[in-house]
Amino acid sequence: MAVPNVVTKRLGKGTLSTSSAVLYSAAPAGTIVLVKALTLCNKTANEATVTFSLAGTEVIFQHTVKAKDTITIPFLDQVLQSGETITGLSGTNNAINYYISGKEVN
């Protein structure tokens, strides 16, 4: 049996807008993605909501992030199959920065 190739990588980083956007698209056929951790930072002086979906399913829905607060989910441990995506949006434009880390296995 072949030993799988595991690549630890940043899956995405940036700033959310008020429109849902694809933040990461899982790799080619035969690749499984392990979404390991997610960090969200509200860089504004007001509360802002955030929604994140994995493979079309909301895993965080309109969660309020306090002003100037950072939330890290260190053990997200979710799986994406080839072709699936991570999407996200914020209730306030340019309020939330995100950083997603994980592993691609093929």
Rank of each mutant, 00 (worst) to 15 (best):
T49D: 04
Q78I: 00
K103Q: 05
A55D: 11
I32S: 01
T15F: 03
Y99G: 02
A29L: 09
N97L: 03
A95L: 12
G102L: 04
D69F: 13
N42L: 01
T57Y: 14
A27G: 13
V33S: 15
I100L: 15
S17M: 04
P74K: 05
P4N: 14
V7I: 08
L38H: 11
S25G: 11
M1W: 14
A29K: 11
S25T: 12
K68T: 02
N42D: 00
S20F: 06
S17C: 08
G12T: 02
I100Y: 14
G88D: 05
A27N: 04
A26H: 01
K66I: 00
S19Y: 03
T72V: 07
Q62T: 03
A95E: 05
A55R: 05
V59Q: 13
A45E: 06
T64L: 08
S82M: 10
S25N: 09
F61H: 10
P28W: 14
L11T: 03
D69L: 04
T49E: 04
K9Y: 04
G91A: 06
L38T: 05
F61G: 05
K36Y: 01
G88K: 00
K68G: 07
A45P: 06
T70G: 08
I86L: 11
L89Y: 15
K43S: 08
S53V: 00
L16W: 09
V50A: 15
V79T: 10
V35C: 01
Q62H: 04
T18Q: 06
T70A: 10
Q78F: 08
M1V: 09
F61R: 09
L16E: 05
T49V: 06
A67Y: 04
F52E: 03
K36I: 00
E47T: 13
F75K: 13
E104M: 10
N93I: 07
V35E: 01
S19A: 10
Q62C: 01
F52K: 00
T15N: 01
N42K: 00
I73L: 15
N5F: 09
L38Y: 15
I60S: 11
S20Y: 02
A21E: 05
L76Y: 15
A67I: 00
T51I: 03
Y99N: 10
T57K: 15
I60N: 12
V33I: 09
G14S: 03
D77I: 02
F52W: 02
P4E: 12
L23A: 05
L80Y: 12
V59T: 09
V35M: 01
T39E: 06
I73P: 08
K36Q: 07
L11R: 06
V59C: 15
L89G: 01
T85H: 07
P4L: 08
P74H: 04
S25A: 09
N97H: 08
T39L: 06
F75D: 14
P28E: 15
G83N: 07
V59D: 14
P28H: 15
L80A: 02
V65K: 07
V7N: 15
Y98A: 07
F75N: 11
T49G: 14
S25C: 02
L40T: 02
L40V: 03
A67P: 03
I71T: 02
N46G: 12
N97R: 11
A67S: 08
L11G: 06
T92F: 11
E84A: 10
A21L: 00
I73D: 10
P74Q: 02
L23Q: 05
G88V: 00
L23K: 08
V3Y: 13
A37C: 01
K66R: 04
I100A: 11
G83I: 07
L38W: 14
E84N: 06
